[in-house]
Nucleic acid binder design. Structure first.
Lengths: 353, 353
DNA sequence: AGCGGTCTTGACATCGCTGCCTCGCGGCCG
DNA sequence: CGGCCGCGAGGCAGCGATGTCAAGACCGCT
């Protein structure tokens, strides 16, 4: 580091304290003095050492972001939402990917305990949740983004997965599909359960049926979705509407249906879940339940920063609504009937790419 | 911060210096003393303040990553590659998204000049390149990942886009396609030029033709690719092989071909470029030129960290080879003839999701 | 006993900035 | 005309580590 506050002070003929006052825009400095100091700073190209500032102030103006992996399809959207809020607020964004499991988490813990960050934003913390709870109880600002639908015992942001399932059901009903099938993700995914619950829930009392035989589980991958549909078809099960909890699996499902010669959406209407970028690239483009990943990230970031600024908002989870993005894998439906009387946007819009 | 090195020293009845020695695993401490100090540290749950360490040591063990946006489809792969190297090396990863343009870049510059990071890894820096060059000349370790094919005047990592274009051409030739068409990305993208050059290059002397009329430009989006194919078809141009520089556009192209009733790969074989996740979800799955994003990120990170450790590797750009991922949008071809005699892997593998 | 060398350890200066307390000084009020 | 007030600015003590230097203990050897 070259020029320090002491240099500036000496050149300006003032004390370090005064330079510091100018630096922090404090009002108790004479205009002339301030101008002179600012001039010197400009001339010398002085930039305060963030290391020293951090130590002296006792904070780092940095938030830690803990993400299990960056490869989840919605993660970039979410992260962008976080970055768009965190950076303009003057905070840095220290990314920890916990993909490595144990060692990665230990590094994260060390970073946090060493006060390298002022707060933590955790996405889908999973096993790290207990640790985060401890940190939170010790007074560290923590916000979690819950993509799993389970409520963390912490300030959190999530989406209404149950309602997402309902929306999918509504759309299929509106399209007149009565013999439904569903592909769920891995059983341990609580979002899947919530979502499936909402789906089944809305069906009761309608003419539509979703038999247990028509519900199959897959691993979340495109291939998994492909295999799942093949299982259904080989079992000679009939269905004219298919709800797939996860867009990648839905893409696989479309491929399997097409290979089997089934028309989509003519013979089978397909609704996915998540609205991740690949959803727009299937043929036909996938109708899906949109989860507002970016907004969720932004909201979590805002909540975290509010806490850092001492605004202690309530700890209630902030739940986002899902919405339906109607593309080509379901027949056009102008309006969804039913008590909730929702409108379905017909969108040709692509997610930003 | 609760317990400090001074507390530990007092409790152990030694000086701070000795505690520091233990902390840093220096050998010149008596075993008994060391054991006692370690015990105290464990009891008190002492963790050194990274803020203080950073100031005292004059570095932050953090690298800055500058990315134009996180939404580029290959960015997550690349970032994961970076994270997988940076984190185990004991460095933090400070993410700057320059999406915001001016202000975001200024924040980045401030962070760097304030020595908040020990080095910088920039992805596609674009306009920030000059700034990075200055930083590099001032001695800051900088590595850039060049996804554009142009060579930065800096240590960099890139891919051989020209060769990527050649591979696409080889595959189409091997499939017996002689009347070719091409959709390029935005003209200002230098990777596109390199790639198109390689493609055209390999065609010369073969029976295949790529007329200027059959080359059209699109904006890189799925819709852009869709429109581009429609333009070609409306112009009643015949082609049995199509090279699309960018997987999202290729997805759009597939959709347009399908809507026009053209069989893929029967009537038209389609090769994309990039191998981003959506490529695996099209119907049929897209054959594409794979760019090893993750490896490139990892290599850049390694290069940066080597520099941080003083290993001054040569500044030559590190260029990665592309490869062909053959999926369903081209007919199966066992082996590519020709002087280079390459083998084409037939892959059903999906990118990690 | 005296000397040089190794091993441990402590004292103290530093890193660069912030924050608290103090002080000089000119103006205002009584 | 003296005291009080408030502004502008300086001094100095942290923040919590690192790192250098020197000192004391202990060793083997001459």
């Amino acid at each position: 580091m070259r020029v320090t506050i002491a240099d500036v002070a000496r050149l300006a003929g003032v004390s370090k304290a005064t330079v510091s006052r100018v630096l922090n825009g404090r009002p108790d400095v004479e205009r002339a003095t301030q101008a002179r100091i600012e001039e010197i700073m400009a001339e010398t190209g002085y930039v305060p050492s963030s290391r020293a500032v951090d130590l002296a102030r006792g904070r780092t103006r940095t938030v830690g972001v803990l993400a299990p992996t960056l490869r989840t399809p919605w993660m970039p959207e979410l992260l962008q939402g976080v970055a768009d809020v965190v950076e303009p607020s003057g905070y840095g964004l220290l990314l920890h990917s916990a993909a490595g499991g144990g060692p990665a988490l230990e590094r994260f813990a060390a970073s946090v305990r060493g006060h390298a960050v002022d707060g933590v934003l955790a996405v889908d913390p999973g096993a790290a949740l207990d640790h985060l709870r401890d940190l939170h109880q010790q007074g560290l600002p923590v916000v979690v983004v819950d993509t799993g639908g389970k409520r963390a015992p912490l300030p959190s942001v999530g989406a209404d997965y149950t309602d997402g399932g309902r929306r999918a059901a509504e759309l299929l009903l509106a399209a007149g599909r009565l013999r439904l099938a569903m592909i769920t993700g891995p059983a341990e995914d609580p979002a899947g359960a919530a979502c499936a619950g909402g789906f089944a829930d809305l069906l009761t009392g309608t003419g539509a049926v979703l038999r247990a035989s028509h519900v199959t589980e897959a691993d979340g991958t495109e291939q998994g979705g492909f295999d799942a549909v093949q299982r259904l078809l080989r079992a000679r099960l009939f269905f004219d509407g298919l709800f797939v909890h996860g867009d990648p699996m839905a893409a696989g499902a479309l491929r399997a249906l097409q290979e089997a010669g089934r028309q989509v959406p003519g013979e089978v209407a397909v609704v996915g879940f998540g609205d991740v970028p690949p959803a727009a690239y299937t043929v036909p483009p996938l109708t899906t339940v949109r989860v507002p990943w970016e907004e969720m990230g932004a909201a979590a970031a805002r909540a975290l920063i509010d806490r850092l600024h001492g605004k202690h908002a309530d700890d209630d989870p902030e739940i986002f609504e899902t919405s339906l993005v109607s593309r080509g894998s379901t027949p056009p439906v102008g309006r969804i009937p039913g008590q909730r009387n929702r409108r379905v946007a017909r969108s040709t819009e692509l997610p930003a790419f």
